[in-house]
Amino acid sequence: MRFRASAAAVTGALALSAFAVPAAHADGAGSAYRAQAGKLLRAAHSAPGKQGVTSVRGGTPYDLDVSFTHFKVAKAITVGTTHHIAATVTYTLNHGADVDITADDFLNGPFIYRGSFEASDNVVFGDEPATCKVVTATTANCTGKIDIYPGEGYLRNPDAGSWKGGALALAFNGQNQEHPDPSKVGVARKGGLGRTSLQRGSRQSVNASPEPVRKGKAITVTGALTRADWEDNKYHGYTRQSVKLQFKKKGAAAYTTLKTVKTDSRGNLRTTVKASADGYFRFSFAGTSTTPAVNSTADFVDVR
């Protein structure tokens, strides 16, 4: 589940009608959770009171006695242009004795957001609620997913970088989960529980020629460094980036760096070295805050 609009821009009853779940992901056991999590999070954000505490007022969900600790999410999540990404999140759910977390209509799950918690620029939920294992009468260990679908327009290139983690719990208390009375639904939500980074998927190619080559002659090594564009769902050259040309002699255990080359205005790489021995060439990119590290596959050159 995703939404881009600022939570602060939508209030009260309007918040409950302003969120639509993409039809492709609206079926199955988790449909009620997917359909309501974003709506009720917005409604809770719009309620009076301090962060994390809501009040019973008209169509506003009431404050649920639930909190979240020990939130863990991957340091970085790589997102390409086509494949669905499901990142695992674990956390501890703490609750009051009067909250029945085993009820069929008690749902909870993680989310990540960009910007401030109360007025986030973008939020990404999981498709399904988390699953929890009861530890004590008031605690449970939970595991949930963050589901990301490249190509659906919910991520833009500027979204690459730092995101924060949060969690949400919903107690429907017997309400129709698709059309609940918000004032009878309990909501607990908390931001700032952890941090992750969404990174644009990267690719690196290499080609060393000629093959075979005489010892002492020049070998030309070319390649291209590209990364995912979340707005047109294609890979484009990553320009002006430093990339290491590395070589591993046949029979050796590790690569050594020969030189550092910069990509041109189209993300292409080109350099030359002298042939010295049979071995493997590759380009190695160390990565940036928005793009993960990547090594090309090895290209073997026979030196005669």
Rank of each mutant, 00 (worst) to 15 (best):
R195E: 11
T90W: 00
R214V: 13
A254R: 10
H179N: 14
K259Q: 14
Q246L: 02
I77G: 03
L14M: 08
V21Q: 04
Q246W: 01
G165T: 07
G267W: 04
F106Q: 06
Y238I: 01
D98W: 01
A119I: 06
F68M: 07
T102W: 00
V66Q: 08
K244W: 00
D264I: 08
K250P: 00
E128I: 10
G52C: 07
T69W: 00
S46V: 12
L41F: 13
L155R: 13
G144H: 07
F285N: 09
F71S: 09
K250C: 00
L155T: 13
H45E: 09
A87F: 06
G80R: 14
R2C: 07
D127T: 15
K217Y: 10
D264G: 12
A97V: 04
K145P: 02
T272E: 06
T102C: 00
A44G: 06
A252F: 02
F19L: 10
K190E: 11
K250W: 01
G165W: 06
G237V: 06
V134D: 03
K50N: 04
D147H: 14
A130D: 09
T222P: 01
H83T: 15
L14S: 12
G201I: 05
S120Q: 14
L269E: 07
E128N: 15
G287Y: 05
A43L: 09
I219Y: 03
P212S: 14
T260N: 03
G161K: 10
I101D: 03
G153V: 13
G59A: 14
K250F: 01
F68V: 10
P61W: 11
A5R: 14
D299M: 04
K248D: 03
T271H: 04
V124Y: 03
V206E: 07
A74G: 08
V261R: 05
A286N: 14
S209R: 14
S67V: 10
D104E: 10
D232N: 15
V303L: 09
V21S: 04
F300T: 06
L225W: 06
K234H: 05
A167G: 06
F111D: 09
A18P: 00
R227A: 08
S284Y: 02
D121H: 09
A5Q: 13
S276E: 12
A254H: 08
A188M: 04
V124F: 03
G186E: 06
V213W: 03
S120Y: 10
R195I: 04
F281D: 07
Q199V: 12
S284I: 02
P292S: 11
K262S: 08
G287I: 13
V294T: 13
V99M: 01
T288P: 01
P210D: 12
V124E: 15
G165F: 02
Q246K: 05
T297K: 13
H25E: 12
R240E: 04
A218R: 15
Y91A: 09
K259P: 00
W230A: 05
G174F: 10
I148V: 15
